[in-house]
Amino acid sequence: MKTPVLDVDTQGSLLSPTSYWEAGEVIIRSLPRAISMQGDRGFRSISSCIYGGGLQTTQYIGNFQVERSYRSMEPEKDLQDRFKEVGVPEEKMPLAAGFLTAASVLDAGWEVRTGEQWELLTCVSVGTANSVRIPMAASDDLNRSYSPGTINIITLIAGVVRPEALVGGVITATEAKTAALYDLNIRVSDGRHATGTSTDAILLGSTQRALVRHRSLDDEKPMNEIQYAGLATTFGQALGSAVYNAVLHAGTRYLRR
């Protein structure tokens, strides 16, 4: 049976538990306690995730749900075991990037944006039990801050993205997250609006290839590069709105539970 093409409804939910994002050539599986993404080829990525973070080539991405009481001295080992459970081969582990969250991954928000020579997919899971605000007082409860509530942001881009645009995209995505938290009225214990949670993580990845619809059979040369990802650019505005809406949808579902 052919895998359904990725489709997202107006509330930022996937319409099929297994789907294929054609622009980025990624198989997506939304499981009861995990979101699994497998690219046909690797993405150039920048991320802060627990497993496979930094500047990497990433082909497998997992966002795994844990209990609120989760504590582990070896989260990297735990994530490696979880990747094996969703079918990532041992030899492919260096190409994997993994997140943990105590929020329901079934509540994740999904958004797609399309430009002339690029397309982006954003997935965000939201939990705000450990919300924080910058600046954070030194006397604040650090044990609470390390709990696995977490806002995990994954944005994949089908297109050619310069390294400085990936870094700029992290800034834009973070600003969008904070704006959505404000509109969700998420606050910290002293009543101020939260700027995030204490364990937020992000991954931005790009195919570094032209969109499928722009390729010829013998042409893999890069097309126009995305050089900037700030709000002065069409791409930056699309990225910001995708992350904002994904956080808003996922956060609304989280608050209703």
Rank of each mutant, 00 (worst) to 15 (best):
D107I: 05
D107P: 01
G109D: 02
W110E: 07
W110R: 08
E111I: 13
E111A: 12
E111Y: 09
V112P: 04
V112D: 06
R113D: 03
T114K: 15
T114I: 15
T114S: 15
G115T: 05
G115Q: 09
E116I: 01
E116T: 10
Q117T: 15
Q117R: 15
L120H: 14
L121S: 05
C123G: 09
S125A: 06
V126W: 05
V126K: 07
V126C: 05
G127E: 06
G127R: 02
T128S: 08
A129F: 15
N130V: 05
N130M: 02
V132I: 12
V132W: 10
R133W: 04
R133S: 10
P135E: 01
P135F: 02
P135Y: 05
M136N: 00
M136L: 05
M136D: 00
M136F: 08
A137D: 14
A137K: 11
A137L: 05
A138I: 03
S139M: 07
D140C: 01
D141Q: 13
D141S: 04
L142I: 13
L142R: 13
N143T: 13
N143F: 14
N143C: 08
S145V: 04
S145K: 06
Y146T: 11
Y146F: 13
Y146C: 02
Y146I: 04
S147P: 01
S147V: 15
G149V: 04
G149R: 02
G149Y: 00
G149P: 07
T150F: 07
T150C: 09
I151C: 03
I151S: 01
I151N: 00
N152W: 06
I153S: 12
I154V: 14
I154D: 03
T155K: 12
L156N: 06
L156G: 03
I157P: 10
A158G: 12
G159A: 11
G159I: 09
V160A: 07
V161I: 10
V161K: 04
V161N: 01
V161L: 05
E164T: 07
V167Y: 15
G169Y: 07
V170C: 08
I171C: 10
I171F: 11
I171K: 08
T172P: 00
A173D: 09
T174K: 07
T174E: 03
T174V: 12
E175R: 11
E175A: 04
E175Q: 12
E175P: 03
E175F: 09
A176W: 00
A176V: 04
K177E: 01
K177C: 09
K177N: 07
A179V: 10
A180N: 04
Y182D: 12
D183L: 14
D183N: 15
L184R: 00
L184S: 01
I186P: 06
V188M: 07
V188I: 02
S189P: 14
S189Y: 10
D190G: 12
D190E: 10
D190N: 15
G191E: 03
G191N: 06
R192T: 14
R192C: 02
R192P: 06
H193S: 08
H193N: 15
H193W: 15
H193L: 13
A194S: 09
A194Q: 04
G196L: 01
G196Y: 00
T197S: 03
T197K: 01
S198K: 00
D200R: 02
D200F: 10
A201W: 03
A201K: 00
A201D: 00
I202A: 07
L204S: 08
G205M: 05
S206H: 09
S206Q: 05
T207I: 01
T207N: 03
Q208L: 00
R209Y: 13
A210G: 12
L211A: 02
